[in-house]
Simulated scan of single mutants.
Amino acid sequence: MQEEELQALLDKLTTLPAIEKREPNMFSIGARGHYENPVSDVLAFFLWPEAEHGLGNRVLEALLSCLPQGQALDASLVCAPEREASTEKGNRIDMLLESDEWVLVLENKIRHQQNNPFEDYQDHLKTEAAYRHKDFYYVVLSPEGKAPAGWHGIAYKALLTALSECLGKAFITGPVNKWLVLLREFILHLESLMMKSAIPETTERFVLENLDQIQEMLNLKNNVIKSVQEEGLRYLENHFADQGYEISTRLNHWYGYPALRYAFSHWVSASDVVLYLNATPGETFDVRTYACNLTSEALREEAKACLNHETYEAPWNEGQGKIIGFQVLIDQKNVDKHALFAEIARQMAVLDDFELTKRGE
């Protein structure tokens, strides 16, 4: 890729709409909450007024409020919502709600396809002796609120609005508990499922249309970082040639940015010196020393005394106090690689003195 092409691609990148940031929730982190069954299970739990959540019939009222004249219905149930209720033909109803006065079939459609045997569901209620003299309600809960003839469609947006109002009242009238937090997480998860992609269409189209150049740019970036890492290793090998030290190096990525790690092979601890090329806006490159395996307070104090040079920023602790970090910030503008390598060498020499003379005492 020519430099002009690279610059043009970077210029275009800066004009693209930003990707929407969405709040994660417990259902979206490693869970299978996007499937209909888990969503229905959680919804059924909150719809049962006698369940442990302590919200009473608030969630049931929220659901009924989405139906025509639903607020006039008695918001109580004679038993817990029945999940996967079987019909005579062997079909399964997502959820069956029964009160003294009415029976409600609820089909939950997280995705848009609606190919269920809806007529069989209706026949099941009509032929069930226990449901005689009760009113029947057939409801499809879906992203857009669509439903077949004879059924009432509830859009998830309408239900989420009602649930949010329910949650707000619960926060005001009672103490915060884990069930309120869980309901809020559930609402956030459903909102995220119903939303369009967080990536703007313009941004998506740009990436798809320029995949080859973007991949070429990524390859270029990786090759440059690898080259800098190897050049740093050669510099250090020459710098410490008289000592005959063997030097090891590793490449990590912290928050997407490269961290080039260097250490002497004779160190018995995991201590090392790291060049962190942090290009996050508002941040800067730095060279940092990690003194590791500090197993006693005396060794921690020795590390502080030996390593805490006046050029360092304030040190910090990691690993429950068994690691101390020191860093020197580096101006990213007009970065001199040899100055970076010289700073790495300086910190390695100081750390080497600690590792050889202090750790064994």
Rank of each mutant, 00 (worst) to 15 (best):
residue 32 R to F: 15
residue 26 M to R: 12
residue 7 Q to H: 12
residue 83 R to E: 01
residue 97 L to G: 05
residue 36 E to F: 08
residue 94 D to I: 07
residue 115 N to V: 05
residue 21 K to L: 15
residue 10 L to S: 08
residue 97 L to T: 09
residue 32 R to P: 08
residue 66 C to M: 05
residue 59 V to T: 13
residue 102 W to S: 01
residue 35 Y to H: 15
residue 52 E to K: 14
residue 18 A to L: 08
residue 6 L to F: 11
residue 14 T to I: 11
residue 68 P to I: 00
residue 113 Q to E: 13
residue 16 L to V: 09
residue 16 L to N: 12
residue 9 L to Q: 10
residue 30 G to E: 03
residue 104 L to F: 07
residue 54 G to Q: 11
residue 64 L to C: 06
residue 46 F to I: 02
residue 97 L to M: 07
residue 41 D to H: 14
residue 30 G to V: 04
residue 85 A to W: 13
residue 35 Y to W: 10
residue 9 L to M: 13
residue 109 K to E: 00
residue 111 R to V: 10
residue 69 Q to C: 03
residue 7 Q to P: 00
residue 35 Y to P: 01
residue 31 A to K: 15
residue 39 V to D: 01
residue 100 D to S: 14
residue 30 G to C: 07
residue 6 L to Q: 11
residue 5 E to I: 09
residue 102 W to V: 05
residue 103 V to G: 04
residue 62 A to G: 04
residue 61 E to P: 04
residue 51 A to L: 09
residue 68 P to V: 00
residue 80 A to I: 05
residue 96 L to V: 05
residue 98 E to H: 04
residue 93 I to L: 09
residue 5 E to F: 05
residue 10 L to P: 01
residue 58 R to S: 12
residue 96 L to D: 00
residue 90 G to C: 10
residue 88 E to D: 04
residue 38 P to V: 03
residue 19 I to H: 03
residue 56 G to F: 06
residue 43 L to W: 04
residue 95 M to D: 02
residue 85 A to F: 12
residue 113 Q to W: 04
residue 6 L to H: 09
residue 106 L to P: 11
residue 113 Q to P: 00
residue 10 L to K: 14
residue 72 A to V: 13
residue 94 D to K: 10
residue 39 V to A: 13
residue 15 T to R: 15
residue 72 A to G: 06
residue 71 Q to K: 13
residue 39 V to M: 09
residue 66 C to W: 00
residue 115 N to Y: 01
residue 99 S to W: 07
residue 59 V to F: 08
residue 38 P to S: 08
residue 97 L to S: 06
residue 83 R to C: 06
residue 108 N to G: 10
residue 66 C to D: 00
residue 75 A to P: 15
residue 59 V to P: 02
residue 14 T to A: 13
residue 69 Q to G: 08
residue 109 K to D: 00
residue 71 Q to H: 10
residue 38 P to R: 06
residue 101 E to S: 12
residue 84 E to L: 02
residue 89 K to H: 14
residue 51 A to T: 07
residue 11 D to V: 09
